[in-house]
Computed example of a mutant assay.
Amino acid sequence: MTKLFATRLALAATMLLLVSPAIAAQQDNEAPPAPKPGKLINTGEVLSGELNAMKVRDVKNAGKRIAMYQITSEPRRLPAPNGLCNLETGPETFQLVPSGDAQAAQLKTFAGKEISVKVDEIACASDPGQMSEAVITKWSLIKKQ
């Protein structure tokens, strides 16, 4: 009887050793949790990040090369109706549209540096030529103290 018990115990231990890697592999294959949406950014709030300058071709002006500026920041949600701009976490790149030559010159001096802007008007990118996920059309630069 002891010999029968020992045989069954050895068989059970062998089966357990064969099954445990399969159980561990199944647990590793579980999908990681979905990323949480970024914090909501409303009109009048401050957006901070690194300012990037790029030269792009203007489709409206016979292919003339123009400067485009964008802020790379943490993911942010936009107010309704824009929401997350068809992204899981919200946009991370925000195109700054200068309202004139003065704002363009102001941005040029801060290229590659950390800046903060007060957002007055923001929307998801909709034109095919836009390189950012969201566009800030009205903004003002915040001076660091």
Rank of each mutant, 00 (worst) to 15 (best):
K108Q: 04
L84R: 15
P37I: 01
D28E: 12
V19N: 05
V117P: 00
A105P: 07
Q95Y: 09
G112N: 09
L141P: 04
T7Y: 02
G38V: 05
G38C: 04
A24H: 10
P35V: 07
Y69T: 00
L51K: 00
V59C: 14
E50V: 09
V59R: 11
Q130T: 04
T72F: 08
A10S: 04
A13S: 04
T7L: 08
A22Q: 13
V117G: 04
A80P: 08
P75G: 07
A24R: 12
G129K: 01
K60F: 00
E114C: 12
A31W: 02
K36P: 05
L141T: 03
M1E: 13
I71Y: 04
N82H: 15
A10N: 00
K113S: 12
I23W: 05
R65M: 12
M54N: 10
I71V: 13
R76L: 06
K143Q: 11
T89F: 03
N52D: 13
K113H: 08
M1A: 15
A12R: 07
S99L: 13
R57D: 07
K113W: 05
D120E: 13
E30D: 11
V56P: 00
L40N: 07
L141Q: 05
I23Q: 07
A12Q: 06
V119H: 00
T7R: 09
N61A: 15
R77N: 13
K138Q: 08
R77M: 14
M131I: 11
N82T: 13
K3T: 08
Q145C: 07
Q130W: 04
E92H: 10
T109G: 14
I122Q: 04
N61K: 08
C124M: 03
D58R: 01
P91A: 03
L17P: 06
E30C: 10
I66K: 00
I66V: 12
K108F: 02
R76T: 06
P33V: 03
Y69H: 01
T109V: 09
P33C: 05
F94Q: 02
P33H: 00
D28L: 13
A62G: 15
E121R: 09
M54T: 11
